[in-house]
Computed example of a mutant assay.
Amino acid sequence: MEHSPKLVSSEVAALWSAYMQNSMSYCIVQHFANVNEDHDSTDIIQTALTNCSYVVNEVKLIFENENHAIPIGFTQEDVNLKAGRLYSDLFALRYIKHMAAAGTAAAAALLEVLARNDARDFFSKTSQMFMKLYNDACDLLLKKGAFVRSPTIAPMEKAEYLQSETFLSGLIGKHRPLTAIELAHISKNTETNSIGRTFVSGFSQAAKSPEVRKYMERGTEIAAKHETVFRQVLIEDGVPMPSTWDSTISQSIDAPFSDKLMMFQTNSLTAISIAGYGAAIGATLRKDLDGHYTRLVAEIMQYANDGIKLMIENQWMEQPPQNIDREALRNRRV
Protein backbone atom coordinates (compact mmCIF):
# COMPACT_ATOMS: atom_id res chain seq x y z
CA MET A 1 0.00 0.00 0.00
CA GLU A 2 1.19 3.53 -0.81
CA HIS A 3 1.65 5.63 2.30
CA SER A 4 0.16 9.13 1.95
CA PRO A 5 0.91 10.98 5.18
CA LYS A 6 -0.69 14.25 6.15
CA LEU A 7 1.41 17.35 6.61
CA VAL A 8 3.08 17.48 10.01
CA SER A 9 3.44 20.64 12.09
CA SER A 10 6.98 21.48 10.87
CA GLU A 11 5.87 21.18 7.24
CA VAL A 12 2.82 23.37 7.81
CA ALA A 13 5.00 25.96 9.57
CA ALA A 14 7.56 25.97 6.74
CA LEU A 15 4.95 26.30 4.02
CA TRP A 16 2.94 28.95 5.88
CA SER A 17 6.05 31.06 6.53
CA ALA A 18 7.16 30.74 2.90
CA TYR A 19 3.75 31.93 1.71
CA MET A 20 3.77 34.95 4.01
CA GLN A 21 7.32 36.03 3.16
CA ASN A 22 7.01 35.58 -0.58
CA SER A 23 3.57 37.15 -0.96
CA MET A 24 5.04 40.19 0.84
CA SER A 25 8.25 40.25 -1.22
CA TYR A 26 6.24 39.95 -4.42
CA CYS A 27 4.42 43.19 -3.58
CA ILE A 28 7.67 45.00 -2.76
CA VAL A 29 9.44 43.84 -5.93
CA GLN A 30 6.36 44.79 -7.97
CA HIS A 31 6.86 48.38 -6.87
CA PHE A 32 10.57 48.18 -7.67
CA ALA A 33 9.76 46.83 -11.14
CA ASN A 34 7.22 49.59 -11.73
CA VAL A 35 9.67 52.44 -11.03
CA ASN A 36 12.89 50.79 -12.23
CA GLU A 37 15.06 52.83 -14.60
CA ASP A 38 18.15 50.62 -14.44
CA HIS A 39 17.97 48.35 -17.48
CA ASP A 40 20.78 46.19 -16.09
CA SER A 41 18.48 45.17 -13.22
CA THR A 42 15.39 44.34 -15.31
CA ASP A 43 16.03 40.61 -15.69
CA ILE A 44 16.94 40.18 -12.01
CA ILE A 45 13.79 41.98 -10.89
CA GLN A 46 11.64 39.83 -13.18
CA THR A 47 13.34 36.68 -11.86
CA ALA A 48 12.62 37.78 -8.30
CA LEU A 49 8.94 38.21 -9.20
CA THR A 50 8.87 34.78 -10.85
CA ASN A 51 10.48 33.12 -7.83
CA CYS A 52 8.08 34.71 -5.34
CA SER A 53 5.08 33.85 -7.50
CA TYR A 54 6.25 30.24 -7.80
CA VAL A 55 6.51 29.85 -4.02
CA VAL A 56 3.08 31.38 -3.38
CA ASN A 57 1.35 29.25 -6.03
CA GLU A 58 3.03 25.99 -4.98
CA VAL A 59 2.19 26.48 -1.30
CA LYS A 60 -1.39 27.30 -2.25
CA LEU A 61 -1.62 24.09 -4.29
CA ILE A 62 -0.25 21.91 -1.47
CA PHE A 63 -2.58 23.49 1.09
CA GLU A 64 -5.60 23.11 -1.18
CA ASN A 65 -4.85 19.41 -1.68
CA GLU A 66 -4.69 19.04 2.12
CA ASN A 67 -7.90 21.04 2.72
CA HIS A 68 -5.75 23.46 4.68
CA ALA A 69 -6.80 27.11 4.88
CA ILE A 70 -4.85 29.37 2.49
CA PRO A 71 -3.08 32.19 4.37
CA ILE A 72 -4.30 35.73 3.76
CA GLY A 73 -0.75 36.94 3.27
CA PHE A 74 -0.37 39.99 1.05
CA THR A 75 -2.26 40.89 -2.09
CA GLN A 76 -2.59 43.72 -4.62
CA GLU A 77 -4.40 45.65 -1.89
CA ASP A 78 -1.05 45.96 -0.10
CA VAL A 79 0.84 47.61 -2.97
CA ASN A 80 0.07 50.90 -4.73
CA LEU A 81 1.56 50.71 -8.20
CA LYS A 82 0.54 54.32 -8.85
CA ALA A 83 2.89 55.55 -6.13
CA GLY A 84 6.14 57.17 -7.18
CA ARG A 85 9.63 56.03 -6.34
CA LEU A 86 10.49 55.72 -2.64
CA TYR A 87 13.88 53.97 -2.92
CA SER A 88 16.71 54.02 -5.45
CA ASP A 89 17.22 51.29 -8.04
CA LEU A 90 20.45 50.38 -6.25
CA PHE A 91 18.55 49.72 -3.04
CA ALA A 92 16.10 47.54 -4.97
CA LEU A 93 19.04 45.44 -6.13
CA ARG A 94 20.45 45.28 -2.58
CA TYR A 95 17.02 44.20 -1.31
CA ILE A 96 16.74 41.42 -3.89
CA LYS A 97 20.22 40.17 -2.94
CA HIS A 98 19.23 40.23 0.74
CA MET A 99 15.86 38.56 0.04
CA ALA A 100 17.47 35.86 -2.10
CA ALA A 101 20.08 35.10 0.57
CA ALA A 102 17.39 34.82 3.24
CA GLY A 103 15.25 32.62 0.98
CA THR A 104 18.16 30.32 0.20
CA ALA A 105 19.15 29.96 3.85
CA ALA A 106 15.57 29.44 5.06
CA ALA A 107 14.76 26.80 2.44
CA ALA A 108 17.99 24.88 3.14
CA ALA A 109 17.52 25.04 6.92
CA LEU A 110 13.95 23.79 6.71
CA LEU A 111 14.86 20.64 4.79
CA GLU A 112 15.90 18.76 7.93
CA VAL A 113 12.40 19.06 9.44
CA LEU A 114 10.54 17.95 6.30
CA ALA A 115 9.49 14.36 5.73
CA ARG A 116 7.13 14.38 2.74
CA ASN A 117 8.69 14.08 -0.70
CA ASP A 118 6.66 16.91 -2.20
CA ALA A 119 7.64 19.30 0.60
CA ARG A 120 11.33 18.39 0.31
CA ASP A 121 11.25 18.68 -3.48
CA PHE A 122 9.55 22.07 -3.23
CA PHE A 123 12.04 23.56 -0.78
CA SER A 124 15.01 22.01 -2.62
CA LYS A 125 13.91 23.70 -5.83
CA THR A 126 13.18 26.93 -3.96
CA SER A 127 16.68 26.94 -2.48
CA GLN A 128 18.23 26.46 -5.92
CA MET A 129 16.10 29.21 -7.48
CA PHE A 130 16.94 31.77 -4.83
CA MET A 131 20.62 30.78 -4.79
CA LYS A 132 20.85 31.55 -8.51
CA LEU A 133 19.03 34.84 -7.98
CA TYR A 134 21.46 35.70 -5.18
CA ASN A 135 24.49 34.99 -7.36
CA ASP A 136 23.06 37.02 -10.24
CA ALA A 137 22.40 39.97 -7.92
CA CYS A 138 25.92 39.69 -6.47
CA ASP A 139 27.46 39.66 -9.95
CA LEU A 140 25.58 42.81 -10.93
CA LEU A 141 26.46 44.61 -7.70
CA LEU A 142 30.12 43.70 -8.23
CA LYS A 143 29.91 44.96 -11.82
CA LYS A 144 28.52 48.25 -10.56
CA GLY A 145 31.14 48.48 -7.82
CA ALA A 146 28.37 48.50 -5.23
CA PHE A 147 28.87 45.18 -3.47
CA VAL A 148 29.34 45.79 0.26
CA ARG A 149 32.52 43.92 1.14
CA SER A 150 33.80 42.73 4.52
CA PRO A 151 37.07 44.17 5.88
CA THR A 152 40.30 42.64 4.64
CA ILE A 153 42.90 41.01 6.91
CA ALA A 154 46.48 39.93 6.37
CA PRO A 155 47.07 36.29 5.33
CA MET A 156 47.64 33.90 8.25
CA GLU A 157 51.32 32.90 8.35
CA LYS A 158 50.84 29.55 10.13
CA ALA A 159 48.21 27.43 11.88
CA GLU A 160 48.62 27.02 15.64
CA TYR A 161 46.74 26.17 18.85
CA LEU A 162 45.75 28.71 21.49
CA GLN A 163 48.17 28.91 24.41
CA SER A 164 46.23 31.04 26.91
CA GLU A 165 42.70 31.87 28.04
CA THR A 166 43.54 35.55 27.52
CA PHE A 167 42.31 34.92 23.97
CA LEU A 168 38.79 35.26 25.39
CA SER A 169 39.57 38.81 26.61
CA GLY A 170 37.49 40.59 29.22
CA LEU A 171 34.58 43.01 29.14
CA ILE A 172 36.91 45.98 29.57
CA GLY A 173 40.57 46.75 28.95
CA LYS A 174 42.76 45.71 26.06
CA HIS A 175 41.37 43.07 23.70
CA ARG A 176 43.15 40.70 21.35
CA PRO A 177 42.57 41.28 17.60
CA LEU A 178 39.29 40.23 16.04
CA THR A 179 39.18 36.84 14.35
CA ALA A 180 38.04 36.45 10.75
CA ILE A 181 34.87 34.74 12.02
CA GLU A 182 34.06 37.63 14.36
CA LEU A 183 34.70 40.11 11.55
CA ALA A 184 32.38 38.18 9.25
CA HIS A 185 29.52 38.39 11.75
CA ILE A 186 30.13 42.09 12.44
CA SER A 187 30.06 42.81 8.70
CA LYS A 188 26.91 40.77 8.15
CA ASN A 189 25.07 42.40 11.04
CA THR A 190 26.17 45.87 9.94
CA GLU A 191 24.82 45.22 6.44
CA THR A 192 21.51 43.90 7.82
CA ASN A 193 21.12 47.05 9.92
CA SER A 194 21.99 49.21 6.92
CA ILE A 195 19.24 47.65 4.80
CA GLY A 196 16.79 47.81 7.70
CA ARG A 197 17.61 51.46 8.41
CA THR A 198 17.00 52.42 4.78
CA PHE A 199 13.71 50.52 4.70
CA VAL A 200 12.24 51.92 7.91
CA SER A 201 13.48 55.43 7.16
CA GLY A 202 11.43 55.37 3.96
CA PHE A 203 8.49 53.80 5.78
CA SER A 204 8.61 56.54 8.42
CA GLN A 205 7.79 59.21 5.85
CA ALA A 206 5.27 57.21 3.81
CA ALA A 207 3.19 55.33 6.41
CA LYS A 208 -0.36 56.60 6.88
CA SER A 209 -0.72 55.80 10.58
CA PRO A 210 1.02 58.21 13.02
CA GLU A 211 1.75 55.26 15.31
CA VAL A 212 3.45 53.37 12.47
CA ARG A 213 5.48 56.43 11.46
CA LYS A 214 6.63 56.83 15.07
CA TYR A 215 7.52 53.14 15.26
CA MET A 216 9.57 53.40 12.06
CA GLU A 217 11.40 56.49 13.34
CA ARG A 218 12.36 54.50 16.43
CA GLY A 219 13.58 51.67 14.22
CA THR A 220 15.75 54.07 12.22
CA GLU A 221 17.41 55.29 15.42
CA ILE A 222 18.00 51.73 16.71
CA ALA A 223 19.54 50.54 13.43
CA ALA A 224 21.81 53.59 13.24
CA LYS A 225 22.89 53.04 16.85
CA HIS A 226 23.72 49.37 16.22
CA GLU A 227 25.71 50.23 13.10
CA THR A 228 27.69 52.75 15.16
CA VAL A 229 28.49 50.13 17.82
CA PHE A 230 29.81 47.70 15.21
CA ARG A 231 31.83 50.35 13.40
CA GLN A 232 33.35 51.53 16.68
CA VAL A 233 34.54 47.98 17.39
CA LEU A 234 36.30 47.96 14.02
CA ILE A 235 37.86 51.39 14.61
CA GLU A 236 39.20 50.38 18.03
CA ASP A 237 40.69 47.23 16.49
CA GLY A 238 42.34 49.19 13.68
CA VAL A 239 40.41 47.24 11.06
CA PRO A 240 39.89 48.90 7.64
CA MET A 241 36.25 49.97 7.44
CA PRO A 242 34.12 47.86 5.08
CA SER A 243 32.60 49.52 2.04
CA THR A 244 29.16 50.97 2.59
CA TRP A 245 26.47 52.15 0.22
CA ASP A 246 23.64 54.12 1.76
CA SER A 247 20.80 54.01 -0.74
CA THR A 248 18.91 57.14 -1.67
CA ILE A 249 15.39 57.66 -0.32
CA SER A 250 13.16 60.01 -2.30
CA GLN A 251 11.05 62.82 -0.86
CA SER A 252 7.82 60.99 -1.71
CA ILE A 253 5.20 60.64 1.02
CA ASP A 254 2.90 58.60 -1.22
CA ALA A 255 3.07 55.11 0.29
CA PRO A 256 3.73 52.30 -2.22
CA PHE A 257 2.84 49.74 0.45
CA SER A 258 0.13 49.29 3.06
CA ASP A 259 0.97 49.98 6.70
CA LYS A 260 0.29 46.29 7.33
CA LEU A 261 2.96 45.27 4.82
CA MET A 262 5.48 47.80 6.14
CA MET A 263 5.01 46.52 9.68
CA PHE A 264 5.39 42.89 8.56
CA GLN A 265 8.56 43.67 6.59
CA THR A 266 10.02 45.49 9.59
CA ASN A 267 9.13 42.55 11.83
CA SER A 268 10.86 40.20 9.38
CA LEU A 269 13.99 42.34 9.39
CA THR A 270 14.12 42.41 13.18
CA ALA A 271 13.75 38.61 13.23
CA ILE A 272 16.71 38.31 10.84
CA SER A 273 18.73 40.65 13.07
CA ILE A 274 17.91 38.64 16.18
CA ALA A 275 18.96 35.44 14.41
CA GLY A 276 22.14 37.12 13.18
CA TYR A 277 23.05 38.35 16.67
CA GLY A 278 22.35 34.91 18.11
CA ALA A 279 24.63 33.25 15.55
CA ALA A 280 27.32 35.84 16.31
CA ILE A 281 27.12 35.14 20.06
CA GLY A 282 27.63 31.45 19.36
CA ALA A 283 30.69 32.12 17.20
CA THR A 284 32.30 34.92 19.23
CA LEU A 285 35.09 34.27 21.75
CA ARG A 286 35.71 37.84 22.90
CA LYS A 287 33.64 38.64 26.00
CA ASP A 288 33.27 42.32 25.12
CA LEU A 289 31.61 41.36 21.84
CA ASP A 290 29.29 38.99 23.68
CA GLY A 291 28.36 41.93 25.90
CA HIS A 292 27.56 44.12 22.90
CA TYR A 293 25.46 41.45 21.20
CA THR A 294 23.56 40.57 24.39
CA ARG A 295 22.69 44.22 25.00
CA LEU A 296 21.74 44.90 21.38
CA VAL A 297 19.64 41.76 20.97
CA ALA A 298 17.64 42.68 24.10
CA GLU A 299 16.90 46.10 22.60
CA ILE A 300 15.81 44.76 19.25
CA MET A 301 13.68 42.03 20.86
CA GLN A 302 11.81 44.72 22.77
CA TYR A 303 11.36 46.67 19.54
CA ALA A 304 10.04 43.56 17.79
CA ASN A 305 7.64 42.83 20.66
CA ASP A 306 6.26 46.37 20.52
CA GLY A 307 5.81 45.98 16.77
CA ILE A 308 3.81 42.78 17.20
CA LYS A 309 1.57 44.52 19.73
CA LEU A 310 0.97 47.35 17.26
CA MET A 311 0.11 44.88 14.51
CA ILE A 312 -2.33 43.01 16.77
CA GLU A 313 -4.00 46.26 17.81
CA ASN A 314 -4.62 47.09 14.14
CA GLN A 315 -5.59 43.51 13.22
CA TRP A 316 -2.64 43.19 10.85
CA MET A 317 -1.08 40.15 12.54
CA GLU A 318 -2.23 36.98 10.83
CA GLN A 319 -2.52 34.03 13.20
CA PRO A 320 -0.12 31.21 12.35
CA PRO A 321 -1.50 27.65 12.21
CA GLN A 322 -1.71 26.25 15.73
CA ASN A 323 -2.66 23.15 17.64
CA ILE A 324 -6.24 22.57 18.77
CA ASP A 325 -7.16 24.32 22.03
CA ARG A 326 -8.65 21.37 23.92
CA GLU A 327 -9.60 23.47 26.93
CA ALA A 328 -11.61 25.84 24.75
CA LEU A 329 -13.44 22.89 23.23
CA ARG A 330 -14.27 21.55 26.69
CA ASN A 331 -15.53 24.95 27.83
CA ARG A 332 -17.92 25.09 24.86
CA ARG A 333 -19.77 22.11 26.31
CA VAL A 334 -20.39 23.81 29.62
Rank of each mutant, 00 (worst) to 15 (best):
H39Q: 12
D136G: 06
H39D: 08
E77S: 04
N314G: 10
T179E: 01
P256V: 12
N189T: 06
A119Q: 10
M241P: 06
D118H: 12
I281N: 10
E221S: 15
V148F: 03
D78V: 05
I44D: 05
A105V: 04
K309D: 14
L114E: 04
L310K: 00
A298P: 06
Y134R: 02
R94C: 12
M99Q: 15
R231K: 07
A275V: 00
A154G: 01
R326I: 11
F63I: 11
D259S: 13
H175T: 02
P5F: 05
I186Y: 11
N65S: 15
N67H: 15
D118W: 12
I272F: 07
N65V: 01
H185C: 07
Q128V: 06
A101Y: 13
E165F: 09
S4G: 01
G170L: 05
N57P: 04
F130Y: 02
G173Q: 08
R94H: 15
A33K: 14
T248R: 13
F122G: 03
N22V: 06
C52T: 15
D89L: 09
A100Y: 11
I153Y: 06
P256A: 13
G307I: 00
S127N: 03
A107V: 02
T152A: 11
S247N: 15
A100H: 10
S124D: 03
S258L: 13
A115T: 13
F264M: 06
F91I: 07
E66M: 01
T47K: 14
L86T: 08
D306Q: 08
H175M: 09
I308H: 04
L140P: 11
V56Q: 07
K309N: 13
D121A: 14
T75C: 02
C27I: 05
A275P: 02
H98F: 15
T228W: 02
A280E: 10
T42I: 07
M129G: 01
L178Q: 03
L310M: 10
A14W: 01
I324L: 07
G276V: 03
Q302R: 05
V35S: 09
N305W: 05
A283H: 13
K6C: 04
F167C: 03
P151S: 04
V79I: 06
R295E: 14
D121P: 07
D259H: 12
H3R: 10
Q205M: 02
V334Q: 12
Y54A: 05
R330G: 05
Q315S: 15
Q232S: 14
L162T: 03
V334K: 12
I195V: 13
K143S: 14
I28M: 15
E227V: 11
A137G: 11
H68W: 09
E299R: 04
T220R: 15
I72W: 01
S204H: 07
D136T: 06
V56Y: 00
A146V: 00
L110N: 00
R286W: 07
S187T: 13
E217M: 14
D43P: 05
L90W: 02
A304Y: 07
V297A: 01
L168E: 00
D118N: 15
